[in-house]
Design a protein around this nucleic acid. Structure first.
Lengths: 198, 198
DNA sequence: GTCTATAGACGGATAGAC
DNA sequence: GTCTATCCGTCTATAGAC
C-alpha cells in the first residue's frame, strides 16, 4: 500500500516519511497548534519551501497526520481484538479500555489532532474525516460482541473511555492513575447495561 | 470584592472588564490558541499597546481568564449545591453531572483554557493554578455527601464527568446527546461504588 | 492612559533560478 | 526537487510623545 513503484517514487515516499516524523516530533514538543513549517523543514535539513513538494499546504500536513493517526489506531484495534479473544466480556472490555488510554498516552500530539479541536482554523478535510468515521464503525464492530450495541450504551462507553484518557493525559501524563481504573470502569459499564436490559 | 475604591479605580476595573469580555468573545470565535491582542484591542476600540495598562502580558490575560473561569465555576457549584438539597444521592449526582456538562457547553473557550492544554507555551501561573486546586477541594466537599469519597471513586467520577463533557462538546456542541445520559451515568457510578463497598 | 512608531521576531506561501 | 529571495502578513512587546 505504501511502498511501490519506481525508485523515484520510493525516494519521494521516504522523504515524505521523514517530514512526517519531524512534524510529529515537533508537535509533541510544542503542541500541535505551535507547529511551524520552517521548523519542520529545519529538522529534516531542508528549506521551508521544499516541503511544498510533499504537502500542498500546512493544512495538508495536518490532514496527513490526522489520517496517519487513524491508520495507527486501526492497527492497534486489530491487535486488541486478538488479545481479547476468548476473554469474558468484562475482562475484554477492561483490556480494550486500558489499551485505548495507552494509545492516547503514547502521543499527546496524536491525541490532540485526532480527538480535540486544538488547531485554530483547521478541520480535517472530507477525505481525512472519512477515515475517522470508518474507525467509528470498526469500534462498533468490536463493541457489539461485548454487549455494547444500543446507541445510548455506545455513547456512554465512548464518554467513559474518552474521560479516562482525558484525565490520564491532563493529570498524570506518564503514570497509570486512570489506566488502573479500566477494570472497574469495565465492570461498571457492563453491570449498568445488563441492569437496564432486564 | 471587585468594585471598590475611587472613581478612577472603578473606571479602571470597567475597562478591564470590557477587555476581558472582548477576549472571551474572540476566544470563542477563533479558539483560545488563536487569540490575538491586536484583535482584542480593536474590539474594545483601543490600540494594542494600551492593553498593557490593564494586563502585564498576553499570558497575564490568559491567567485572568483562567481565574475568572474558576470563579464562575465556584458560583455554579453553589447553585448546584442548593438545587440538589433534599434529593437522594443518585438524583443529586445526575443533576450535578448534567449541570457540569452544561457549564462546559456554555463556553468552549472557557472549557479549553480551564481543562485542556490548548494554548502552546502557556500554563497558568502559580496564583491562577491555586484557584483550580481550591475548586477541586470544593468538588470533593460536594461529592462526599453523595457517597463519593475514596480516591478511586473520585477519579472514576471525574473521568465520567470529563468524558461526558468532552463528547458533548466534540460531537454535539449545541445539543444534549450526552447530557441526556447524566441520570444513567449517575446510577451507574452509584451502583458500582455501592457494589464495591459491600 | 492612550497614542504612534517601531523593534524584532515569526508565520505561510509563491516565483523563479538552477 | 531544492534552493534563494521575497511577498505580505502576523504577532507580542517596548519607547516615548502627548
Amino acid at each position: 500500500m505504501t511502498t511501490a513503484g519506481t525508485r523515484k517514487e520510493q525516494r519521494h515516499e521516504l522523504t515524505r516519511r521523514q517530514i512526517l516524523d519531524a512534524a510529529w516530533q515537533l508537535a509533541e514538543e510544542r503542541g500541535v497548534a505551535g507547529l511551524s513549517l520552517r521548523e519542520v523543514a529545519r529538522t529534516v535539513g531542508m528549506q521551508a519551501p521544499s516541503l511544498y513538494t510533499y504537502f500542498e499546504s500546512k493544512d495538508g500536513l495536518f490532514d496527513a497526520m490526522f489520517t496517519e493517526g487513524y491508520r495507527q489506531l486501526g492497527l492497534a484495534r486489530e491487535s486488541w481484538s486478538e488479545a481479547i479473544d476468548g476473554l469474558d466480556p468484562v475482562n475484554a472490555l477492561a483490556q480494550v479500555i486500558a489499551e485505548w488510554i495507552r494509545f492516547c498516552q503514547e502521543s499527546v500530539a496524536r491525541y490532540q489532532i485526532m480527538f480535540t479541536k486544538a488547531i485554530p482554523g483547521w478541520e480535517p478535510s472530507a477525505d481525512a474525516y472519512s477515515t475517522s468515521t470508518r474507525d467509528y464503525a470498526r469500534m462498533l464492530d468490536a463493541l457489539g460482541p461485548l454487549g455494547i450495541a444500543d446507541k445510548d450504551d455506545i455513547d456512554l462507553y465512548t464518554a467513559v473511555a474518552a474521560g479516562l484518557a482525558a484525565q490520564q493525559l491532563a493529570n498524570d501524563l506518564e503514570g497509570d492513575r486512570w489506566i488502573r481504573l479500566a477494570p472497574v470502569a469495565a465492570q461498571m459499564l457492563y453491570d449498568n447495561i445488563k441492569r437496564r436490559k432486564e
